[in-house]
Design a protein around this nucleic acid. Structure first.
Length: 348
DNA sequence: GGCCAGGCGCGAC
DNA sequence: GTCGCGCATGGC
C-alpha cells in the first residue's frame, strides 16, 4: 500500500482536493451504529471459496477469522461455521439495482445462497469431476456493476493483490468513509467522481497504461448514468458494458468483458480466458490457439453453466500450480492465514 | 535481473 | 480475421 499512498501525499494539490472531496462526502452513515447481527442457514455453500476465489477485490479474511468487506456501499463481516453463516452488517438495509433489500435478503441475493450450481460432467473428464467436487460450495457473487468494471480494467496484467491495492486506493481517495467497529472502510466511488479525474492523475499514482482506460471508461459511464447511477437497472448496465466492449480505449476487451458479464451482469455462461485458463486448456484438454478460440470452446462445452464449469477448473488448476499461498484457494481456506490485503484501516 | 502478472489496442499482413 | 508487439508497474 506504501508506494501508492506515498506518491499520493507527494501530490500536494491533488491531495488537498481529495481531502476536501472526502470531507464533503463523509456521511452520517453508521458511524457509531450498533452492528446488526444475525445468522443464516445455508446448504452446499462455502464462504471462503466464494470470497477467496479471486472474483472480488474488496473482501479479506482478517486475523480473527472473519471475512470483512464492502459491498453495495455497506460494510459486512461474515463467518461460516458448518452450514451457518454469521453476519454483522453496517446498515439495516442495502440499496441495489433491484431496489432496497433487508440485510438477510441482500446476503441471500449477493451470495446466491439459494442457488446450487449444477454442471454436467462428461464421464471421461476426471479433471472436471475432481474440480467440481473440491470446489463445492463456491458461488459467483452479484457485484456492483461499476465497481466490477473498473476493478477488472485495473486487473489487466497485474497480480490480484496489486489490483486490490489500486481498487482500495480509489475507494479511500474518492469513496465515502464508513467507520465500523473501530475501523475505517470506504465505499467504491461513483462514476462522476472518477470521471472528473483524467489520465495523468492515474499515471501519477502508478496505474501505468491502465490510466487512460480507467479515465475513459469512467467518463463514458458517467455520461450515461447522468448523476444517478443508483437508478440504473441491470439491463441499463448490460447496455453500457456492451457499448464499452465495442469501443477501443476503454480497457474492456474479451477477457475483462467476460469477467464483468459473469461477476456483475448475470451472464453465467461467460468464460473469461486469462493466462491460467489458457494454460489449463492447453495442458488438460489439448486446446491450442488464441484466447478467443479457447473462450469459444469453453462456452460451447459448458452451455448455460460454462461460467461455473470454468471457475472450478481454474481454481483447481491454480491450486495445483499457483505460486503464492493466496493463489491456492483451497489450501488458503483450510488455513487460518489472514489475507494480505484488507479493505479497511485502523481508525485514527 | 529477468520473467511474468486474471490483456488490450494498434498496425501489418 | 488474425498475429505480433509495446505498453507501466510490481513481485518474486
Amino acid at each position: 500500500m506504501g508506494e501508492i499512498s506515498i506518491t499520493h501525499r507527494r501530490q500536494g494539490l491533488a491531495a488537498r482536493e481529495r481531502a476536501r472531496y472526502v470531507a464533503n462526502r463523509r456521511g452520517n452513515h453508521a458511524s457509531s451504529r450498533q452492528p446488526e447481527t444475525g445468522r443464516i442457514e445455508t446448504r452446499e455453500f462455502n464462504l471462503g471459496y466464494t470470497l477467496a476465489g479471486g472474483q472480488v477485490f474488496r473482501w479479506g479474511r482478517d486475523v480473527d477469522g472473519w471475512w470483512k468487506g464492502v459491498a453495495y456501499d455497506t460494510v459486512f463481516h461474515l463467518r461460516q461455521v458448518g452450514d451457518t453463516l454469521m453476519y454483522r452488517a453496517g446498515a439495516s438495509s442495502v440499496a441495489t439495482y433491484l431496489g432496497e433489500m433487508s440485510v438477510t435478503g441482500f446476503l441471500e441475493w449477493y451470495l446466491r445462497l439459494n442457488e446450487r450450481p449444477r454442471i454436467r460432467v462428461p464421464r471421461s473428464d476426471r479433471y472436471l469431476r475432481r474440480a467440481r467436487d473440491l470446489l463445492k460450495g463456491f458461488r459467483f457473487v452479484r457485484q456492483m456493476p461499476f465497481e466490477c468494471v473498473i476493478s477488472y480494467i485495473l486487473s489487466v496484467q497485474a497480480h490480484m493483490n496489486l489490483t486490490k491495492r489500486r481498487v482500495n486506493f480509489l475507494a479511500e481517495s474518492w469513496g465515502r468513509e464508513v467507520a465500523y467497529m473501530g475501523r475505517k472502510y470506504c465505499t467504491f466511488p461513483e462514476p462522476d467522481a472518477l470521471a472528473r479525474l483524467k489520465g495523468p492523475y492515474f499515471r501519477s499514482n502508478r496505474f501505468g497504461w491502465r490510466s487512460e482506460r480507467v479515465a475513459e471508461t469512467a467518463r463514458f459511464v458517467s455520461e450515461r448514468t447522468r448523476g444517478e447511477p443508483g437508478k440504473l437497472t441491470l439491463d441499463d448496465w448490460r447496455e453500457i458494458v456492451d457499448a464499452l466492449k465495442k469501443r477501443a480505449g476503454t480497457g474492456v476487451g474479451l477477457k475483462v468483458g467476460k469477467c464483468i458479464d459473469l461477476f456483475a451482469l448475470e451472464r453465467l455462461d461467460a468464460v473469461p480466458v486469462d493466462t491460467w485458463v489458457l494454460k489449463m486448456a492447453r495442458e488438460w484438454y489439448h486446446i491450442e490457439g488464441t484466447d478467443r478460440r479457447v473462450c469459444e470452446w469453453a462456452e460451447a462445452r459448458g452451455g448455460r453453466s460454462a461460467g461455473y464449469m470454468n471457475e472450478y477448473l481454474f481454481a483447481y488448476y491454480r491450486e495445483l500450480n499457483g505460486p503464492s499461498p493466496e493463489d491456492r484457494v483451497i489450501s488458503f481456506c483450510a488455513s487460518d492465514a489472514p489475507s494480505a490485503e484488507l479493505p479497511m484501516r485502523d481508525e485514527g
